[in-house]
Amino acid sequence: MIRFIAVLAVLTVLAGCAAYSLVDAKRQTIGDAYTVQPSIQWSKADADKVEIWTVDGPDLEMIRFFRGLSDGDRLFSAKDDVKLPTYNPDMKASEIMEFVVDSIARAGAGNVDGTALRPAQFGTVPGFRFDLSFTSGDGLWFDGLAIGATIDDKLHLILYTGARQHYFPKYRDEVERMIGTIETT
């Protein structure tokens, strides 16, 4: 994660602008596919196919909204010549969970486990949910929850992860509540 921040730091300092903007506690549009309504404020950072919301800092907890992954996309960015798991629209939920778990493992996490895969509503679109646990590159335990759906052959995924101690539990209820407010357009 520090590498992500380092890159972000260099880019934003060069661009002369701030990396994080404020997300107000009102309905927000994610990608062009759906909206959610947070009930607290978040700090948001934007990258290509993902936006990150955090309150205390992404290394402690963050919601990652993956905005429409398409055929051949990786979950996390890396150099072109590195082989990583890729998404394809024919994937069933089991294979999407495998794609996420394997990607997190390749990103340097240890003890990555995806559990309790089950059907779930993503707004009005039938989708899936699962739970996660892993250790960071330094050995700190993290918990996570994921909900996703394929809309128009693109994968929309909401991944909330945080340090097992204090941070994941801190906003879990808020994230669950917010998932209940998903409105697919």
């Binding site: 404020q41 800092g57 402690l60």
Partner: peptide, 21 residues
């Protein structure tokens, strides 16, 4: 360690300041 690193980055680098903080 992670909290300390987070504070160093988000409280001491204005470009990375968190609006929520």
């Amino acid at each position: 360690s992670v909290v300390g690193g987070t504070i160093l980055v988000h409280k001491y680098l204005p470009a990375l300041a968190l609006p929520t903080k």
